[in-house]
Each structure stands twice: as structure tokens, then as C-alpha cells.
Design a protein around this nucleic acid. Structure first.
Lengths: 154, 154
DNA sequence: CACTATAATGTTATATTGTATCGTCACATG
DNA sequence: CATGTGACGATACAATATAACATTATAGTG
């Protein structure tokens, strides 16, 4: 039993950007050129990207030096607005494929190639939260990531 | 249902150090004065400690400068030998309360005070591994941590 | 439009975390 | 004693993250 069946029409390209912009709007945040740039860079990576990777990509795209600092600020907003997620075990960020709905994501991180996919299994994350509560803990954000080998590298 | 009931006589003090030393021996690693020092420092922290925190503590304890470098090396051994675990979402390390048995631990990290407890719920981590496999992924090490507020800070 | 408050970004500096490299020391073994 | 090996020291550096303050852009408002 994998929680309620749950199919997203995964937004891509324009649609994904739209979804992100909307999510930001809902969070009361603006969608500026700089933020669009960072988002594009983020989506441009297949793997989770570090703030510095993104800073470099944005710098290239804009033909000027963009400091990691600014990128961090924007990534923080993205994370708050559910537009991106931080992959803790990789110190890196990844775009959220469906900013529209709130999930406790589960990331599968390939130690070989770095490729990272995510699955949504609300029954698992719910039981994680539950177990925490049973221990007298008030959960805010479960971090569920799996290191291992992806299908391509296996 | 919380997996098989599972009660450890949690080793503490001397007993814990013994357990750690044995675990290292099983991994074919030596138990040196330096390693004992690092382990003591690690156990001395209530919260997950960064390698630098530990380097400082060991430096104080030994009245000489110990470089983070050396601490990292030893921590890596500890992690491999199941004597310590890295808390990914905190970039820090914590001693394993029962080096004798292998678990996919679940950590509860308080965002307020930093105190971190761990629970072992094999049914949860098993289902995490299972979900990963169902996605064509070969799991090596699940990272399950929960950020939130502990009972004391609630 | 001009003014102003606020948000966003730039700039620079610095803190924290993590690796790499190579030298030295201690100890075991032949 | 010679030699090999593992542990540790020392130094340098790379990567990740935050702080503080200046400047610029933007949205409201009169």
C-alpha cells in the first residue's frame, strides 16, 4: 500500500516555470529576473546543484559575476516556497517538479553518477512523522534520502 | 506495529567504550589513544558535534593542537565501523549508542536546542529501502532524519 | 510625476566544513 | 638492524555557508 495513488501532470519547461512563479506568488514573493535566472540554472542541472554551481551557471548566462551569496538568498526563498528542495546529504539543491502540492519528498541519490530522482510516498513519510511524535518530538520537516546506485549505474 | 520489539541494554561509560572498541576490532581497525580521545570527545557532546568541535575538545583534553584533519580521518573510520553516524542535515557526527547491532537509524534533530535522539524503527527504514528498490534504485544507506522540536523545547 | 519606504541585489569579508599531500613517527617483522 | 606499514602531524587549500553593509530597483502614495 503506497498511500493514495497520486499522479501529477509533471510540469516542464514553460509550464514548470509558471508553476514555480505561481508558488512564489502564493508565498508572497516576487518573481524577478534574477530569480528566474537562478531557477533556470537550477532546472538546467540534472543533478542536485550546489549554490556555487548555480552561481557559476548564472554568471555565465548573464555575462557578469554573480556572487554565491545572492544565490543562497534566492535558494532559501525557493525552498520556503516549495519551489526547490535542499538535498541534505549532498549539500545541494534540486528543483521541485511539482511546486503546486506539498509533499515530504524522498530522494534517491546515486553515489555513482549523482543523478537524483524523487519519489512521493506519503505513507512512508507519514509514518516517519508519526514515529517522531510517538517519541515526544514535534516534527517539522522529515529528511528522507536514500544513497545508493541508480538503475543506469547498477 | 513497530517492527520487532527491540530492547538494547544501552551501553554507557566504560561499557560503551568497550562496545566501540570491539566494533572497531571487528572492522579490523585499531583502538589507539588518539581514537579513544576522539571517541570520548564525541560521547561528551550531547548534540551532534562537528569535526571541528571535536578537534577543539580533543585539543583541550590533550593540551596540544590537534588538526581537524586527523579528526576527520578517525570519524570516517568510526562511521565505517558503525561506531558513529554522520547526521547529514547537521554536518555533524554523533556516537552510536549500540555499535553492536546494525540499524538504519532515524534521528530526531531539535532545531531549537540541537539535541538529537535516535529511534530504531526497522519497519520504516525497510519500507524506505523497499520503495527505493521499487523505483529501480539499489539502496545502500537510507538517510532518515527529522527536523523539528524536541519535547523539552516544545 | 516626485517621494519615500521597502524589497532585492551587489560587494566584500569571513566563518565553517571538508580534502589532499606529504612528512614523520612508532611498531612489527624478518 | 633494515624495511614495510599504519597512524598521525602539519600545512595548504577547496568547497560550503553566513554576515554586514552599500546600492539599486520597485511599489505605493501624495
Amino acid at each position: 500500500m503506497t498511500g493514495h495513488a497520486h499522479t501529477h501532470a509533471l510540469p516542464a519547461g514553460e509550464a514548470l516555470t509558471d508553476a514555480a512563479r505561481n508558488a512564489m506568488a502564493r508565498a508572497g514573493e516576487q518573481w524577478t529576473a534574477m530569480r528566474a535566472s537562478v531557477f533556470d540554472a537550477l532546472v538546467g542541472f540534472e543533478k542536485p546543484a550546489s549554490a556555487y554551481d548555480i552561481a557559476e551557471a548564472v554568471s555565465r548566462a548573464q555575462g557578469r559575476r554573480v556572487a554565491a551569496n545572492s544565490v543562497y538568498r534566492i535558494l532559501d526563498l525557493f525552498v520556503t516556497a516549495n519551489v526547490a528542495t535542499r538535498v541534505e546529504s549532498a549539500n545541494a539543491y534540486i528543483a521541485n517538479a511539482h511546486p503546486d502540492c506539498e509533499h515530504d519528498c524522498i530522494f534517491l541519490v546515486c553515489d555513482d553518477c549523482g543523478a537524483t530522482t524523487h519519489i512521493d510516498d506519503d505513507s512512508i513519510t507519514a509514518s516517519v512523522r508519526m514515529a517522531a511524535r510517538k517519541a515526544g518530538f514535534r516534527p517539522t520537516k522529515p529528511v528522507v534520502e536514500v544513497r545508493g546506485t541508480c538503475a543506469d549505474c547498477a
